[in-house]
């Protein structure tokens, strides 16, 4: 057990020694898919690091149901474990899912707030661009499980 704690402590120290993100801005575009709802969408967002390793990443998914309209607004905080070419992060946040129906006689509109829990990886293939993969669980939104694939632009 002591060895395990020592191992994680070394990783943490190593990360602290490498990472310096403060003040960075990023833009990202992706496509996401919710496996509970079956909704596919376009996702666009930004990211800002107020302090090293921790970012605020608001993003919006415009979803495409067969009828009606839907969207998912995410306000996420990310914690980055690694730097360099491969960046791994965990995320925690709030999401607001909106759905407008065309045919549902009982309700025409749905608005659900939910928590986001997830993780992701960012692979920087050139200095300015990275590929992003992310998984996310929304427990209050019918246990929605979302997978996103996208691209990130490192502004500075």
């Amino acid at each position: 057990m002591k060895k395990l704690i020592l191992f994680f402590a070394l990783i943490l120290i190593g990360n602290l020694a490498l990472a310096q993100y403060q003040g960075q801005f990023r833009l990202q575009y992706g496509n996401d898919m919710g496996f509970s709802s079956g909704l596919f969408g376009m996702n666009i967002g930004g990211e800002y690091f107020p302090v090293d390793q921790i970012s605020f990443a608001p993003n919006l998914s415009v979803l495409f149901p067969e009828t009606g309209k839907a969207s998912n607004l995410h306000l996420d905080a990310r914690y980055y474990f690694t730097d360099d070419k491969l960046e791994l992060y965990a995320l925690l946040g709030y999401a607001n899912f909106r759905r407008r129906y065309e045919f549902n006689p009982e309700k025409t509109y749905e608005n659900t707030g939910t928590m986001n829990i997830g993780a992701g990886v960012l692979y920087k293939f050139i200095e300015e661009l990275g590929l992003n993969a992310e998984i996310k669980l929304q427990p209050q939104n019918y246990n929605e499980f979302i997978i996103k694939l996208g691209i990130s632009y490192f502004i500075n």
Binding site: L16, A17, L18, A19, Q20, Q24, D83, D84, E128, I155, N156
Partner: peptide, 12 residues
């Protein structure tokens, strides 16, 4: 226009 980003802290 990209500012050089220092990605490493001074050695501990």
């Amino acid at each position: 226009r990209r500012r050089p980003v220092t990605r490493s802290l001074p050695a501990l």
